[in-house]
Design a protein around this nucleic acid. Structure first.
Lengths: 192, 192
DNA sequence: CCATGGTGAGACAAAGATGTCTCACATGGG
DNA sequence: CCCATGTGAGACATCTTTGTCTCACCATGG
């Protein structure tokens, strides 16, 4: 064993289990602990050694989702350049986590008060702040509230993730579809 | 009793139960049969007399959702006038059913092959057809596929329904928020 | 070689939800 | 008044999932 073996191999294992669980629960949000274990290639006993129970697993997934969102927000450099470009960078950065986000987004409709509400609130604020910046600079229209634009972004991310996983949308179009609809809408523009 | 009493009162009762269940499951998608019964003001036994089981209840809700969608599609007269106006009418007509739609939309991520797939396919086709008409007439841009626009509409309806139920968006803004984002996007338009 | 620790398989009880049943009660018609 | 029908309350068995436990196995390091 040794401390290094523990902290290193376990951490890698745990991360692998977490990502397998995310991939499975994205497709089947009611998957059993046994199914999660099999999907990760481990036994239910070992799964329980990593996560005390289903709640703990979902909490860990929530933490992972928050972490990846924050990382995407950082990588997108929301404060730099035109807000529209920042939105584009944000969607591109957040795409790999979209499936997980969709799972957590629908899961959170259930646990009203529980969960890492503070973590999500912070993310909501950062995204809403981006839209607010775009409104103040005159790039974005002001009759759609930042809160709604944020919510709409979540909804479009979830829709796109499902549409891609069911083959209704090509994976390579993911970012383009979301960004163009969110920013430009469906109506044809004369100006551009 | 009497046959009329049965077929009439039962039907009303059944409809009332169905709508109570829809309202509850919209907020708490994992609600128990007991909770559904209490929400409808009846006992679990009576609930079981109306619907053989939870599956039957969800199936009935799915049928109700399909029915209301079709009704909204009919009322919106998708073939008349500019496609953009038809989209506006559609969202306005479908608003009362948005909560139920959101529930079914996320529920259907689970039952892959099951359910009234044919009913949904027909609705998908009608909505996608509306977007295709708008593209052909030159109203809508052609780089966003009708399938994606349809999916996005579902996602925005679900997002808006949740945002309203959690107080993040005013109920009266429901239609405006969705239509303006879906058609016009967040970017400010020079022309209008 | 042997000891240690992680793992898989499976047994087990507990908890929750479901489906079925019985029984008492009320209401409305004959 | 009496009977029939729908209803509510609750008991009950069943099923699924969960959480805990034990035990045999195996790989790795000493």
């Amino acid at each position: 064993m040794s401390h290094m073996g523990y902290s290193c191999l376990m951490a890698l294992d745990r991360d692998h289990v977490l990502r397998s669980a995310a991939a499975l629960l994205t497709r089947k949000s009611t998957a059993t602990m046994d199914e999660v274990a099999k999907a990760a290639g481990i036994s239910r006993a070992t799964l329980h050694r990593h996560f005390a129970g289903r709640d703990a697993l979902v909490r860990a997934l929530e933490a992972l989702g928050i972490e990846e969102c924050e990382a995407a927000l950082d990588a997108a450099r929301l404060d730099e350049g035109p807000a529209a470009d920042a939105v584009h960078r944000l969607v591109r950065e957040i795409e790999p986590a979209a499936g997980l986000l969709a799972f957590l987004y629908t899961e959170n409709q259930l646990f009203e008060g529980e969960g890492q509400n503070q973590g999500w609130a912070r993310i909501d604020d950062r995204i809403a702040g981006l839209f607010r910046r775009g409104q103040r600079s005159g790039e974005f229209r002001i009759d759609l509230t930042p809160a709604w634009l944020t919510e709409a972004l979540y909804g479009l991310l979830a829709s796109a993730a499902w549409a891609v996983s069911e083959g209704r949308v090509a994976p390579k179009d993911f970012t383009h579809m979301i960004v163009e609809l969110l920013l430009g809408g469906a109506r044809r523009r004369e100006e551009s």
